[in-house]
Design a protein around this nucleic acid. Sequence first.
DNA 1: ATTAAGAATGCTAATTATTATTAATTTGTG
DNA 2: CACAAATTAATAATAATTAGCATTCTTAAT
Lengths: 130, 130
Amino acid sequence: MNYSKHRSLILDALKINTNHPTAEEIYMFLKKDYPKLSLATVYRNLNYLSQLCLVKRIKGLGNSDHFDYQTHSHSHFLCQSCGKIHDLPETIAPDINKSVEQILEAKVVYHDMSFIGVCSDCQKHHKVQF
Amino acid sequence: MNYSKHRSLILDALKINTNHPTAEEIYMFLKKDYPKLSLATVYRNLNYLSQLCLVKRIKGLGNSDHFDYQTHSHSHFLCQSCGKIHDLPETIAPDINKSVEQILEAKVVYHDMSFIGVCSDCQKHHKVQF
DNA sequence: ATTAAGAATGCTAATTATTATTAATTTGTG
DNA sequence: CACAAATTAATAATAATTAGCATTCTTAAT
């Protein structure tokens, strides 16, 4: 794999933008400064990068995938009210992969844990749930 | 909401078909016996049913959502080799929602835990990973 | 049983998210 | 620099899902 300016920009965008953006959001973010950038390039590189485990692909509540620069195993909280994705420390369940391996006699490569509910901000502001 | 033959059939199909089918798969399954059934009806009703928490929507490895008749909180194992979705007992992490609520001061409604790896069958048969 | 209102459906078009194609540009290397 | 391979932009194509609308089914009151 060769060096590519755009791939590097996409990785940087994810590093800066810690709010777990979608491909489209990364595209919009970079498009401002690099108008030549194409959406297909963003998708292509996010696929490369996630295959190389340089970024993490996250399934959210909607239909589009989100991406995370943090590749270490960690979990997320998805707010049903504001839609934001919050990070969680992995300490909540340290040896859970091992447990699953024992139960199913399977090899666990990684896990994807999401907690869905209402975040503290939205509870305070009495925002309407959708 | 009125009674509907089709909605009832879709729920039954999910009850019988415990392999976490997609909307398309449920459609194909029912289409054989009920040729008048439309794919849009399957999608519409799966949305209704999951809003009412009568079925569970599951994000798999691919781009289409899977559905589960089991609505109680439980986790899944996704095999990267054969693509099958296996169920896991919730005992692997009993009080995890409470932990998350304490960490984020949020309200956790439910969680969605997926373990990704290679199932025991695929390990035995030396199937190639994709 | 009849009927009218609302709910649900089939069909199709439209949208959204993503991937494939291909010619042109960029990058690594001798 | 020159050439081959990798990457890209632009666009077409595909996949997954939703929306619109005329028709059919359900419900509950007559």
